[in-house]
Simulated scan of single mutants.
Amino acid sequence: MISPESDPTGLHRVLDRPPVLPQAAQRLDTRRELWPDEVRIRVERLNLDAASFRQLERTHTTDGVVDGDAIRAAVLDIVATRGKMQNPETGSGGMLVGTVEEVGPDSPLGLAVGDRVTTLVSLTLTPLVLEDALASWDGLGEQVPCDGYAVLFGRSIAAVIPDDLPVPLSLSVMDVCGAPALTARIVGEYAATGRDPVVAVVGGAGKSGSLSLAAARDAGAARTIGVVPHQAESELLTGAGLADEVTIADARDPVALRDAVEKAGGPADVTVVCVDVPGCEGGAVLATADGGTVVFFSMATSFSAAALGAEGLAADVRMLVGNGFVPGHAAYAMDLLRRTDGVRRLFESRL
Rank of each mutant, 00 (worst) to 15 (best):
V144Q: 14
P145E: 09
P145V: 14
C146A: 15
D147P: 01
D147H: 10
D147I: 08
G148V: 00
G148I: 03
G148Q: 04
G148F: 03
Y149M: 02
Y149E: 02
Y149D: 06
Y149A: 02
Y149N: 05
A150M: 08
A150C: 10
A150G: 08
V151E: 00
V151F: 07
L152V: 00
L152H: 02
F153I: 05
G154C: 07
G154Q: 07
G154F: 01
R155C: 08
R155L: 15
R155A: 12
S156E: 03
S156F: 04
S156D: 09
S156Y: 06
I157R: 15
A158D: 01
A158H: 00
A158S: 01
A159K: 04
V160K: 12
V160Q: 07
I161A: 11
P162G: 06
P162T: 13
P162V: 12
D163W: 05
D163K: 06
D163A: 15
D164H: 09
D164W: 07
L165W: 07
L165A: 14
P166A: 14
P166T: 05
V167K: 08
V167A: 10
P168G: 04
P168Q: 08
P168L: 06
P168C: 10
P168E: 10
P168I: 09
P168H: 11
L169D: 04
L169V: 11
S170E: 01
L171E: 10
L171T: 14
L171N: 09
S172W: 03
S172G: 15
S172K: 14
S172H: 12
S172M: 15
S172A: 14
V173R: 03
V173W: 03
M174P: 00
M174V: 09
M174C: 09
M174T: 08
M174W: 03
D175P: 00
D175A: 15
V176E: 03
C177T: 08
G178T: 02
G178P: 07
G178Q: 05
G178L: 03
A179M: 08
A179E: 01
P180S: 03
P180W: 04
A181H: 02
A181G: 07
A181P: 12
L182P: 05
L182W: 00
T183C: 13
A184Y: 02
A184C: 13
A184G: 05
A184S: 14
A184K: 06
R185T: 11
R185S: 12
R185Q: 15
R185Y: 11
R185E: 13
I186F: 05
I186D: 04
V187Q: 02
G188M: 10
G188D: 00
G188F: 07
G188N: 06
G188Y: 01
E189F: 05
E189M: 14
Y190H: 15
A192E: 13
A192C: 03
A192F: 10
A192N: 14
T193H: 08
T193W: 12
T193M: 10
G194I: 10
G194Y: 13
R195E: 15
D196M: 09
D196P: 04
D196T: 15
D196N: 14
P197M: 12
P197I: 08
P197G: 11
V198D: 09
V198R: 13
V198I: 15
V198Q: 09
V199H: 00
V199Q: 00
V199P: 02
A200L: 11
A200P: 10
A200Q: 09
V201K: 04
V202Q: 13
G203A: 11
G203M: 11
G203S: 09
